[in-house]
C-alpha cells in the first residue's frame, strides 16, 4: 500500500488525476456545507447574469454566472456532480463488468455462444436509444436506477465487441495454450490469463464511455428517464443551456468544462493504474 501511494505521488499524471477526482467527490459529498446559493431556486430578475469575480464571497455573487432561470451555476455544478458522478460511475462499472465478462466468454468459447452473443449485440445496437428509453419509462417508470440500467445497456456492447476481438487473438497464444495443456479450467484461464490481458482496452473504453454517458444523460432526462427538473445534472445543464449558447456562453460552457475535467482526471488515473499494474513494466 505504501509503495502504491509512493508510486502514485511520484507520477505526475496519476497524482493530478486522483487530486481532481478527490476534489470532485469531496465537493459532491460536502455540497450542503459549502454555503452555496440554492441550486434549484433562482432569482428570475438575475436571469443569465454573466460570471463576476468581484466580491467573490459576498452573498449574491455568481462566480460562474447564473442560468436561464437565474440559478447559480457554480452551485448547480456542485450539486449536479452528486447525480452525474453517481450515474456515471454506476453505469460505467455495470456496463463494463457485464460487457467484459460476455466479451471474454464469447471470444474464448467461440462457436454457438459467440454467434449468439454477437447477434444479440447487433440487435441491441440497432434498436434506437430513444425507443429503449421510452420503453423503460413506460414499463418500469422513471427512476435513477432505471436510468443507470438503460445507460449500462447501451454501454456493455462496446466492451463486449472490443474484448471479444482481443480474446480471439489471445486464446491462440502460447501462454493460454500451455495453461490449457497443464489442465487449467476454462474459468481459471479466463480469469487468470485472459482478463489481465484485456484490461487495457477495457479501461480505454471505460473512459470513452464515461464522457458519452454523462452527455447522454440529458437526452434521456428529457424523455422522462432520470433527473427531473429543477434538479440538475451536468448533462441536463448542458442541454438546457443549448439554446442560449450564442447569447450566454457561460450557461453551457461551465458544465461542459466540469465534464471535461472529470473525464481528464479519470483518464490520467486510468493510464497510470494500467502502467502500475502491468506486470511487464514492473522490474
Amino acid at each position: 500500500m505504501k509503495a502504491f501511494l509512493r508510486a502514485l505521488v511520484q507520477s505526475r499524471g496519476g497524482l493530478f488525476g486522483i487530486l481532481i477526482l478527490m476534489l470532485l467527490v469531496a465537493g459532491a459529498l460536502l455540497a450542503p456545507t459549502l454555503g452555496l446559493p440554492d441550486p434549484v431556486r433562482g432569482d428570475l430578475r438575475a436571469r443569465m447574469a454573466p460570471p463576476t469575480w468581484t466580491g467573490l464571497f459576498a452573498p449574491g455573487a455568481h462566480p460562474l454566472g447564473t442560468d436561464q432561470l437565474g440559478r447559480d451555476i457554480l452551485s448547480r455544478i456542485v450539486y449536479g456532480s452528486r447525480i452525474t458522478l453517481t450515474i456515471g460511475a454506476y453505469a460505467v462499472v455495470l456496463g463494463g463488468i457485464v460487457g467484459v465478462m460476455l466479451g471474454i466468454v464469447a471470444g474464448y468459447c467461440g462457436g454457438i455462444t459467440d454467434r449468439l452473443l454477437m447477434r444479440l449485440v447487433d440487435i441491441q445496437l440497432a434498436i434506437p436509444l430513444m425507443l429503449l428509453a421510452l420503453l423503460v419509462v413506460a414499463a418500469l417508470g422513471p427512476s435513477l436506477t432505471n436510468l443507470v440500467i438503460v445507460l449500462a445497456l447501451t454501454s456493455w456492447i462496446r466492451y463486449a465487441r472490443i474484448i471479444r476481438g482481443q480474446v480471439l487473438a489471445l486464446r491462440e497464444r502460447e501462454f493460454v495454450q500451455s495453461a490449457r495443456t497443464i489442465g487449467a479450467s476454462t474459468a481459471q484461464i479466463m480469469l487468470r490469463h485472459i482478463l489481465p490481458n484485456v484490461m487495457t482496452p477495457a479501461l480505454v473504453v471505460a473512459t470513452l464511455e464515461l464522457a458519452r454517458i454523462i452527455i447522454m444523460d440529458a437526452a434521456l432526462s428529457f424523455l422522462g428517464l432520470g433527473v427531473q427538473p429543477p434538479a440538475a445534472s451536468w448533462g441536463r445543464m448542458l442541454a438546457e443551456g443549448r439554446v442560449y449558447i450564442s447569447t450566454a456562453w457561460w450557461v453551457v460552457t461551465f458544465p461542459g468544462l466540469a465534464i471535461m475535467l472529470t473525464v481528464l482526471s479519470v483518464n490520467l488515473l486510468g493510464d497510470w493504474l494500467r502502467d502500475y499494474f502491468d506486470p511487464r513494466l514492473r522490474t
Binding site: T207, L208, M260, L264
Partner: peptide, 18 residues
C-alpha cells in the same frame, strides 16, 4: 483527443457554424 471526446457534439457544431 481528450478535448475531442469530452466536447459535446452540439457545442462543437454550433461553434463551428458561428
Amino acid at each position: 483527443a481528450l478535448l475531442g471526446q469530452a466536447t459535446p457534439v452540439f457545442w462543437l457544431g454550433i461553434m463551428l457554424i458561428l
